[in-house]
C-alpha cells in the first residue's frame, strides 16, 4: 500500500520501480505540460507577427522574415534554389502569380532572376514582435482599460478590507442582541451567486445612478460575506484581555479596532487582500452588465469585446491577454502559499 502513502522516496524497498512510480511521474509531467503549456504557448504566440500567427504548422518560437535594403526599399530575403541547382540568398523585388523576380542584394544592378515561389524559402530568425504590446496601448484604448482595471481592483480591495474588518470586529468582539441573526444572514448569503440577483441588482445600481460608472462595478462587490466570515473567525482567536487592558488605558473603541485588532489580524487580512485582488481583477459578468461605454471597460471586458469582433486581431489580443494575466501570475509566484493555506483551511474561493 505504499502506492497510497509512500514514506520514503520511491515505493519499492530497493526493489526498483513499482508501476505506480512510473504512473506518478507520467501524471506529474503530463500535468505540468497540460497546465503550464497553454499559458507558455500564449506568451510565445503573443510575440509573433500576424504573418507568423497565420502559419500552419506553427513554430514554437516567434520568427520573422529577414529583410534587406535594395535600392532604398526593404525587401524580403529568401534562400533560393536556382534552375542550375545552386543555392543563393536573394531578395524579392516583386511577385507575379507563382513567379517572383529575385535579385542578389550584393549586386542589385544585375538582371533579376525569375524564380518559381516553390523553389525558395524565407530567411528567418527569432524576433520578438514587441509592437503587439505597444500598439494596443498607443492606438487602441487598452491603456484606459488597464487603468480602469487597476482602479477597480485597488479601490474594491481597500474598501473590502475596511468594511469587512469593521463588521467582523463588531461581530467577534462585542456581545449584542441580534448578533447571531446578523451572522446567520451573512452565512446564508455566502452562496448567493451574482447570476441569481442579476436583474434586480441592475435596477438598484441604475436607481443609484451608478450605471456606466466604475463605482457601480466596485460597490456591489465589496461587502463580501466570505471576507466577513474569514476575518471574524480569525478575530475570535484574539484574546479579549488585550482589549480590556487597552480600555483601562482609556483607548477608544475605534482605537482598539485600529491599533490592536487590525494589526493582530494581519495574516487574515493578507489572505483576504490577495483573494480580493484576484477576484476583482478577474470579474467579468458584473462589469459586462454595468459598463456599456467603451472608455469605462475593464481589461477583461475590453479583451472580450475585441476578441469578439468579426476580424479578430489575434496578435493584439494575445499580447493583451498576457497583460491581463500578469498580476495574477505575480500573485501566484509570490503569494501562492497564502492562497493554498486559505483554501485548505476554509474552502474559500
Amino acid at each position: 500500500m505504499r502506492w497510497l502513502v509512500a514514506k520514503r522516496g520511491r515505493t519499492g524497498d530497493g526493489r526498483g520501480w513499482h508501476w505506480t512510480d512510473i504512473a506518478t511521474w507520467v501524471w506529474l509531467i503530463g500535468g505540468t505540460i497540460l497546465m503550464f503549456g497553454p499559458a507558455v504557448w500564449l506568451v510565445l504566440s503573443s510575440f509573433k507577427t500576424p504573418a507568423a500567427l497565420a502559419e500552419f504548422p506553427p513554430t514554437l518560437l516567434p520568427f520573422a522574415q529577414q529583410t534587406v535594403e535594395v535600392e532604398g526599399e526593404q525587401k524580403p530575403l529568401y534562400t533560393v534554389t536556382l534552375a542550375d541547382g545552386t543555392v543563393r540568398t536573394m531578395a524579392e523585388l516583386r511577385r507575379v502569380g507563382i513567379v517572383a523576380q529575385m535579385v542578389d542584394p550584393d549586386d542589385p544592378g544585375a538582371e533579376p532572376a525569375r524564380v518559381n515561389i516553390a523553389d525558395r524559402d524565407p530567411v528567418r530568425e527569432v524576433d520578438f514582435a514587441t509592437e503587439n504590446y505597444t500598439e494596443p496601448f498607443m492606438r487602441f484604448d487598452f491603456f484606459l482599460f488597464l487603468r480602469n482595471s487597476v482602479f477597480v481592483t485597488v479601490m474594491a480591495t481597500i474598501i473590502t478590507l475596511l468594511t469587512n474588518s469593521m463588521a467582523a470586529f463588531a461581530l467577534s468582539k462585542y456581545e449584542f442582541r441580534g448578533r447571531n441573526a446578523v451572522m446567520l444572514l451573512i452565512i446564508a448569503t455566502l452562496m448567493v451567486p451574482l447570476s441569481v440577483i442579476l436583474v434586480p441588482l441592475y435596477s438598484v445600481v441604475a436607481a443609484t445612478g451608478l450605471m456606466n460608472n466604475l463605482w457601480g462595478v466596485i460597490l456591489p462587490t465589496v461587502a463580501t460575506p466570505t471576507g466577513v466570515f474569514l476575518l471574524r473567525q480569525y478575530m475570535l482567536t484574539i484574546p479579549d484581555e488585550l482589549l480590556d487592558a487597552a480600555r483601562m488605558d482609556h483607548a477608544s473603541e475605534w482605537q482598539i479596532y485600529w491599533r490592536i485588532v487590525l494589526p493582530l489580524a494581519a495574516p487574515a487580512l493578507a489572505v483576504l487582500a490577495i483573494f480580493s485582488v484576484v477576484w476583482r481583477w478577474n470579474d467579468f459578468l458584473w462589469p459586462l452588465v454595468v459598463l456599456s461605454r467603451k472608455e469605462l471597460y475593464t481589461l477583461q471586458i475590453g479583451l472580450n469585446t475585441y476578441a469578439g469582433e468579426l476580424n479578430v486581431q489575434w496578435h493584439y489580443i494575445l499580447a493583451m491577454t498576457v497583460v491581463a494575466m500578469i498580476p495574477v501570475v505575480l500573485v501566484f509566484v509570490f503569494l501562492q502559499r497564502f492562497i493554498t493555506a486559505g483554501i485548505a483551511g476554509t474552502g474559500l474561493k
Binding site: P38, A39, W41, L42, V278, W281, N282, F284, Q300, L303, N304, A307, I317, L318, T321, A324, M325, V328, V329, V331, F332, I339
Partner: peptide, 10 residues
C-alpha cells in the same frame, strides 16, 4: 487564479 476571459482566450 486565471481570469475566465484569459482562460477562454488561451
Amino acid at each position: 487564479l486565471l481570469s475566465p476571459v484569459v482562460v477562454g482566450l488561451i
